[in-house]
């Protein structure tokens, strides 16, 4: 388990990360969400000791510096183009392998895994963003680390690459590893993350599992369609239950399906449809970060 505790980073008067604490469980993919400028990358850098600040991060109870081979504990991808443009892809990985005490034979293995074997001897300066991301992923998994920390790994990948990455991350975590991944692709995140950490303006907003986050959203509820909808609406108003009309039925908040089923039975309302509806991750995310956007778009200025 990774335990980040009271992470804080200040730039003069601006607080980039403000007392953020959370845990990353093994065997799971933990998504890291936040609007632009929320402090995601800074948090990751703090966790790795790349930025100076307050707070501690332990990996299975030990600081990264306590391990003799840190790159066998955590693999990182914080920036796609983090390589010398004229050092070949293979040599780039050989340098990292040497630094991590990893045998050179592993270099060819990871190049094969990420699909860059054919361009291993090419200089990565002219790689596309997608190819650069693959090289970054190869670097991250070079030491077969238990933990992966990936910052926007899907940026620049084509649809096939995104699908491959999603499956790869899920598979990697399932082998008693943990993957901590930030992404703005919420649909992708909803498909691969088990847990979520959400920050905004440097502060922790939520650290929970995906199901809890979605079901707690105001957009989550129960969809119900009955014969005699006006009677149902009257009953709900009397019980001070909030609802809204939706697709010939009602989207009801605050009551579970079994409670609504009982209520309809007692009111002699024939039920045509009754289903729990989770919010989408996008709805939940926007709701959580509504007041935490550092950079917000504005409508066209009125003339």
């Amino acid at each position: 388990m990774i335990h980040a505790s009271h992470l804080t980073k200040k730039y003069r008067k601006k607080v980039a990360v403000d007392d953020v604490s959370f845990k990353i469980e093994t065997g799971k993919v933990t998504g890291f969400l936040g609007p632009n400028g929320a402090g995601k990358s800074t948090t990751m850098r703090l966790m790795l000791g790349l930025d100076s600040g307050n707070g501690t991060t332990t990996f299975d109870g030990k600081h990264l510096g306590d391990y003799s081979r840190p790159s066998k504990v955590v693999g990182i991808l914080l920036e796609a183009k983090a390589f010398h443009p004229t050092r070949t892809a293979r040599n780039h990985l050989r340098v990292l392998a040497a630094a991590g005490g990893i045998p050179d034979s592993r270099v060819d293995e990871v190049l094969d895994i990420v699909g860059l074997k054919d361009v291993a001897k090419k200089r990565p300066g002219k790689f596309s963003l997608g190819m650069s991301q693959r090289l970054g992923i190869a670097a991250a998994i070079l030491g077969k680390p238990k933990y992966l920390m990936l910052d926007e790994p899907a940026n620049g990948l084509d649809p096939e690459g995104i699908a491959w990455l999603r499956q790869f991350i899920k598979d990697y975590a399932s082998h008693d590893n943990a993957v901590f991944v930030s992404s703005h692709l919420l649909s992708e995140m909803s498909q691969m993350a088990d847990n979520l950490v959400v920050i905004g303006k440097g502060k922790l907003i939520a650290a929970t599992d995906m199901d809890s986050l979605l079901s707690a959203s105001a957009h989550a509820g129960v969809f119900m369609r009955v014969i005699g909808q006006s009677k149902l609406e009257r009953i709900l108003r009397q019980k001070a239950v909030t609802f809204e009309r939706s697709d010939d039925g009602l989207l009801i908040n605050g009551l579970k399906t079994d409670e609504l089923g009982t209520l309809a039975y007692e009111a002699s309302l024939p039920v045509l449809e009754l289903a729990a509806k989770d919010a989408s991750l996008e709805q939940a995310f926007l709701e959580l970060t509504a007041n935490s956007e550092e950079y917000r778009t504005h409508g066209e200025e009125k003339k």
């Binding site: 850098r45 790795l48 000791g49 790349l50 990264l64 510096g65 306590d66 391990y67 003799s68 840190p70 790159s71 955590v74 990182i76 914080l78 920036e79 183009k81 983090a82 390589f83 010398h84 443009p85 340098v95 990292l96 630094a99 991590g100 670097a139």
Partner: peptide, 18 residues
Amino acid sequence: THEYRYNTIMYTLTSARR
């Protein structure tokens, strides 16, 4: 300076204990 220009410094520093 190549380390900082191309940001490979993050790999270098996270690979070493100190």
